[in-house]
Design a protein around this nucleic acid. Structure first.
Lengths: 224, 224
DNA sequence: CCGTTATTGATAGTAATACTACTATTTAAC
DNA sequence: GTTAAATAGTAGTATTACTATCAATAACGG
């Protein structure tokens, strides 16, 4: 069995939570709690109580809850890129590779036993509902300089470069890549909560497939 | 001179701020402040101090700052739909109408003297940076039932229905419409703060035009 | 096995936030 | 002109988001 440990941006944490018992506990429990309560109602106090520790101890790992959110979402994008690379590994044809990318991006995530302390399905819901809060702040520019969004930007660039391979003349590969990354999260959220904004009906058995159809059609027609 | 007063969702406010001096002052100043401080750092206390009133007085108009944000963003979408209708008024050909819609959505907003107490350019920045925070909460379902997102959904449906007119066989008109509405806000935000995610370079004189090219191409190729 | 250091836990305290309840003042209605 | 309703202003509370201090324990090297 492989154990996955990702090297994430150094500046989001004070002490690397992947390396200690308490750290992994913080990660595991905060994912559960943010998923359940939403980021606004999630507090370090509640987290501390839930894992039988104290606020002060958690502050030794993360400066504040915003950086904890950035950390776990950074983890998600890093993990997703790893997954995508893994599956598109031997595919030479750029059109086929792009299709695999889109499939992996839009498919349902399942529990990965390689990282026992992370519930990928909860994490996926967190990314859907909270990702944009990480950069829609007055601190974007500083946070960006610190490298907090690097994994997301790397993923975006990877998709953009395959788009360019498929059609070198297409003018907006990065814009299209960032659009589909967000679109995927949003359409799933809409399906469940704001169905008027989507043609993808909430139906855990089929909506990932339908989402894929929407995205595949949109991307390939656009870059043609 | 026409004076525009929009009828917005009744449940977002306690007392209609459009009808009183203090109310309009709250609107005008909160738009300025949210734009400047960001929604997180904006408080009723600061707002009250700035307009020489008290927290309690503001609480008589809005239950909390979240509902104030919903209100001003609701105002924006209502205003935008009015603008779009105004300009697409006599256009019968659906392709041409859709083009006018996209143009109006992506163009630069300017100060509208019809509503002297609203700074549309600040409001536009607020929508770019804060809109998603209105529905990415654990209260979505309740807020949606209360009709808080009606103006946005109406606009989305209007765009979706022209898309269907252009190509009745296209399967995802609502998903496409909601995608482009968000995309427009995001690409402008990226251009300024996260340029790696976009091919639209920050340049107030030209980026709206380039944004329009990206969207027009994406929409018409997709629905073809 | 002892002493040093790192890690965690417990307790307390502060400033700011998000309200709520109550009192004072103005306005408007009959 | 008195009474009732609307509005403004004052004061207070619970919670949040930290910070600081010190004690207890585990880990580790000589």
């Amino acid at each position: 069995m492989t154990i996955l440990i990702f090297k994430l941006s150094e500046n989001t944490f004070i002490r690397d939570p992947q390396t200690t018992e308490l750290g992994r506990n913080i990660l595991q429990t905060s994912i559960k709690m943010v998923d359940k309560l939403g980021f606004e109602d999630f507090t370090f106090k509640k987290l501390a109580t839930s894992i039988g520790s104290t606020e002060a101890s958690i502050y030794r790992y993360f400066e504040n809850k915003h950086k904890l959110l950035i950390y776990i979402i950074d983890w998600y994008w890093t993990w997703l890129e790893y997954k995508i690379d893994y599956h598109a590994n031997n595919i030479k044809d750029p059109t086929e590779r792009l299709k695999v990318y889109l499939l992996k991006l839009s498919e349902e995530k399942v529990f990965d036993p390689n990282v026992a302390y992370v519930d990928e399905r909860a994490l996926e819901r967190i990314v859907s509902a909270e990702f944009e809060k990480t950069f829609l702040t007055k601190n974007v520019d500083a946070d960006n300089k610190e490298g907090f969004f690097l994994s997301y930007k790397t993923l975006c660039k990877k998709i953009a470069s395959v788009i360019t391979e498929v059609n070198p003349k297409y003018e907006f590969p990065h814009s299209l890549a960032s659009t589909i990354l967000l679109l995927i999260k949003h359409q799933l959220y809409y399906a469940q909560h704001l169905p008027a904004l989507s043609d993808i009906k909430y139906d855990p058995k089929n909506h990932h497939k339908r989402l894929y159809l929407f995205v595949e059609n949109l991307v390939f027609k656009t870059i043609q």
